[in-house]
Every structure is written in C-alpha cells, then in structure tokens.
Design a binder for these strands. Structure first.
Lengths: 163, 163
DNA sequence: CTACGTGCAAAGCTTTTGCATGGAA
DNA sequence: TTCCATGCAAAAGCTTTGCACGTAG
C-alpha cells in the first residue's frame, strides 16, 4: 500500500478474527489461521486465487473451498474488504489497521493508486443522513490513465502492458 | 430514475450510437437499433438478462450474443455505464442525457437510491489532478440499509424481502 | 467479392454447494 | 454425541467465443 502508512494495531488480526468467530459459535481452525496469517503477511491487494495457489494441497494450507469460505468470513468480520474487480475476480485488501482510502485504477497498466478519502466519507455521511440511509460502507473505483501511462510514448513507461 | 430529472438531449441516443459505430467502421444494424431503442425506452436500471428475455427469439429482436455484444459497444460509446453488480450480474444505466449521480444501495431490499454527485466529482478531479491521473469516470457504490428497511419491524415496510 | 454481423451452441471462469468424513468439546 | 469444518468434485450462472452462414456495399 503506497503512500498511506500503516497504523499500529492494538489487537492482531488473528485475535480479532478469533473473537469474531466466537460470537458466531465458530472456531479458529488451523486452516483459518493459516489464511488470516497469509493474508496479513503482506499488504498488497489480492484475489482468492493468490492464496489458493499458495495454500492448496500444502500441509498447513487449506483447500480452495476453505479459502473462499474464509475470505467471506474475514470480510464479514471487517478484516478485509472488496475494493475492485479485475479479470472477473474480486480484489480484496486489508480493512483493519489501515486508514480509510479509495483507489485510482489505471485502465492501461492496472495499477491501483490509493488516496485517503476522509472528505468523500464525510460527504457520503451527509448524503446518507439526508436520505435516512444507514450507511455501512462504500466502494469507489476511479478509473482513467495513470501518469506513467499517459506520458507520450517516447520509450514506453508502462509498468505492465496489457495489450 | 427517481429524483433526478432528465435533461433534454440534442442528439438522440440512436444517432449518437450510429456516429460511434461509424468511427469504428461498423454499421447500425436492425438488431443494434432494436437494442438501443429498447434500452432507452425506459430509464430504469437494467442488466443484460432484461433485454435478452424481451428480444431473444422475437422478430425485430436480437440474440443473446448480440445483446451482450451490443451492450459492450453501448458502454464503449458512452451511452450506458455499469453502476453495480447484483446477483452476479452487471447492472447498467443510461450515461447520456442524464445528470451525473451515484447510488445508495440497500442491502436488504436492493433498492438503489440515486443522488447527485457534483461535490464528489469535484473532489475526485482534484485528487486525480494531484496524481497526474487522467480520470475518465468513476463508480461509487454506497451500501447500507435504507430508511424503509431500518424502520422497526412493526408491520414490515420492506419493498421486497430478500430473506 | 469482401468485410462485418448474427445466431447457436459450446466453452470459460470464478465462486458456490452437496456430501461424506473427521475432529473438537 | 453433537456440531462445526474440511476437501473433493460437481454444479451454478453469467458472459464470451468459435464457427458457419448471411448480407450490405
């Protein structure tokens, strides 16, 4: 996660997750723990497949189904959230221990640039209030062409050419 | 479209589409015309299936494939845009002849409440500029519970119960 | 005659689900 | 014993694609 710095977290994600599971009468199994740990080991955006490939058919890993099922739980627990769709896949990111933000998504190279969204969040609060709408969250994808990709084609500055 | 009123359009959608197709060396076929007409006949949100059901296997209609292919073209032409996903389906709406807006989406009854988004658009312009990002559009989904659905369950005010 | 379009059916993909087995409490 | 969980494979479901046939210009 680029320019936004992490903020120290009191309770580690795993514990947060265990708490959540408890309230639902569920357990923190080794598989579930493996997934949370993996997910929180890096701060990159990811999709289900990333972890399926790393965890499936490995000891101390988890199956495809379990990964999907656990991601849903993590989302419900507020630990991760869906931020976009890329190649027909849901893209997730951490939603705990990080400041709120949204993304500029480059249609050319696919890069996702984060930006803090306090102002937007405020505006939304106000709008929601005006409609008697109990807002629980939002998802904002801004698309266009990033600075690198829109530079004149001198010698191609693209990070990843999708053509 | 609820509270936002339509603004008179100089060039009708069909013509706009024809122009677009021309620039790509394509033709406005009867099928394509049928689809644009159908799509612009009502101002509701819609997904591919809506038109497939109405147009498939009817004379003066169009096949499933053609509907999908044409919706893509219409999107590329800037006549419609994807605004959300519902039940794994892309939800579209007109993106021509209407003021810009975004949506509050009720997780309970599924209603999509529109609201004008000038303020947000401005904020985004500014953020994009700061990043040298050439913004072409955005997609903002605000979710939560609408006023009707969050009323205490006296006698159920929900428009559509999804349980 | 050539290129663009259509329709049909099959394929593609991610995500979900049914079911039998296994383990914690 | 009882219920929660896992894994496997199959199902689901929307969207895309290959292909042969038409047809406008």
């Amino acid at each position: 996660m680029s320019e936004l710095s992490a903020m120290p977290v009191a309770v580690p994600p795993v514990d947060k997750f265990r708490e959540f599971l408890l309230t639902k009468g569920m357990r923190l199994t080794p598989e579930r723990e493996a997934i949370v740990t993996a997910v929180y080991a890096s701060h990159e955006h990811f999709d289900a497949d990333v972890w399926i490939e790393k965890l499936e058919r490995r000891k101390g890993g988890a199956s495809r189904s379990t990964v999907y099922r656990t991601l849903s739980l993590l989302e419900e627990a507020g630990l991760i959230r869906k931020v976009a769709r890329s190649n027909d896949r849901e893209v997730y990111e951490h939603d705990y221990g990080y400041p709120q933000h949204d993304h500029l998504i480059c249609k050319k190279c696919g890069e996702m640039i984060e930006f803090p969204n306090e102002v937007i969040a405020e505006v939304l609060e106000e709008i929601a209030a005006r409609h008697g709408f109990r807002m629980s969250g939002h998802r904002l994808e801004v698309d266009g062409i990033c600075a690198d990709c829109s530079r004149p084609p001198e010698r191609m500055h693209r990070k990843l050419d999708m053509i």
